[in-house]
Design a protein around this nucleic acid. Structure first.
Lengths: 246, 246
DNA sequence: CGCCTATTTGATAGCCGTCAACCGGAGTGG
DNA sequence: CCACTCCGGTTGACGGCTATCAAATAGGCG
């Protein structure tokens, strides 16, 4: 209900992990907010700043990143519509990283105070916020494993598997075709590789029949095989009734 | 007050980031719990398991890790006395990684239900729990930067800086001398390097006068220089009155 | 004292980075 | 409508950081 509120994607995402009652959904949809459209590469949160209102992504893609002293960049997470972009900062007084738009985006800004009040008012919503943050932490851990312990082919394959899985039931049709919203340079920043090596690695994946590229559109003709190559186990996304996979 | 409860280190750690009133401290100290001693390398949380009571580390060191398909291991965080070992899992139904004792440890086990009830009862404590999880997520992000964008020398130096900073005012004396509780193999698992290369890197740091080793004891004769080499900025630990450092 | 694990050191190999050139599509302005 | 420009993608040659393999040493514990 109320797919009209710009906050609907947020409710939808929260509801993927924690079942929300219709009253809780209503409380979220009725949060005070304003909408804001931004161009690709616009900065949404800047490191060192005191966080303002909490941004929620409703259209387009965004990413978090940190900069090393030598200016190189490490992307630490990707975000899709429905993701809260700084629930991470709801309780911290100083941003420790940057959040930037990957594509043109629409975000909804909600005052931090309203979110905190809501968490106090509804234990279920507080629970959903906590779970949201914990799942994001889990994704960070998986990325650490990805960058620390997998070679270039596995790393890139894993990133694609994660994106495809998270987009499932959204922009993705049944045969796993979707727009990869990143340049090869950005893929490199996310996987700790150079854009040159990303290029060679994508080619290897394509030659192996694991991906099909056409411009920025990507199709995964054999998702199971890609998952196998990547060593991808979706448990860490905590999406639903998932049990131990040994 | 009540440095006698085994939960005192937990209160102390929480209080580093969120000022707790004496009533809140009392509520935590009075949580139902039992103490458990474990040997080095004992498993405290196992991937795939449904989390039981929440473990809090009160003595010794512990670490989180994930395993890649080929059996290699990535350590994703280190823990010191006072750290909660699965606040991470308080709201998730399936552990997505392992937690293991690094040294002989003493942990205090608290029922999840009691912790969740406490969070509902006291907004300040709920806030402290949230901050604790957010800081851990921030550390994950910094580790991603560390492993993804820094070379071996910087990586190891950064890990040492983090440990020294987190231990400050605990087991560390004024001149930054402390026991490094990890084997070189474990250092390698934490920095995505091999134990052989850790060895060479520690030697380089020693030759440069940045560390002094004697058995597992480590001294940092010039912490400022080590921080500079590491590109270490403690902002991400959110320890106290920290502001933007540009 | 002897075993076992951790540390140390050397030689060699490989994955990926760096540098550089070329290509190709999209947007722009004439 | 076409030339120009620019950014991103593509490809090749070369180099370096770190892994791998192997062996020797040292330290801890029975």
């Amino acid at each position: 209900m109320s797919g009209l509120s710009p906050l609907a994607p947020f409710v939808r995402t929260l509801n993927e992990r924690v079942e929300l009652g219709s009253d809780d959904k209503r409380l979220i949809l009725d949060l005070p907010h304003f909408t804001r459209d931004m161009k690709a590469s616009a900065t949404i949160v800047r490191e060192g700043e005191v966080p303002g209102p909490c941004a929620i992504l409703v259209r387009g893609f965004a990413f978090r990143h940190k900069l090393a002293r030598d200016g190189t960049r490490q992307i630490v997470s990707l975000h899709i519509p429905g993701d809260a972009l700084d629930l991470q900062h709801m309780f911290l007084d100083c941003a420790d990283h940057n959040v930037q738009a990957l594509t043109d985006v629409r975000v909804v800004m909600v005052p931090r105070a309203a979110l905190r009040a809501l968490a106090l008012q509804s234990p279920t919503i507080a629970h959903a916020f906590a779970v949201s943050n914990l799942v994001e932490a889990s994704i960070f851990r998986e990325w650490l494993l990805n960058i620390g312990r997998r070679d270039a082919l596995q790393r890139v394959a894993h990133l694609l598997c994660e994106l495809a899985t998270r987009l499932e039931g959204r922009d993705i049709s049944g045969d796993y075709e979707f727009e990869l919203p990143m340049s090869q340079e950005q893929l490199g920043d996310a996987t700790a590789l150079t854009s040159v090596h990303i290029n060679r690695t994508l080619k290897r994946l394509e030659d192996a029949g694991l991906i099909v590229r056409a411009r920025r559109m990507l199709r995964l003709p054999d998702f199971a095989a890609l998952k196998w190559v990547a060593g991808f186990n979706p448990l860490y996304l905590h999406l639903a009734q998932q049990k131990a996979a040994a």
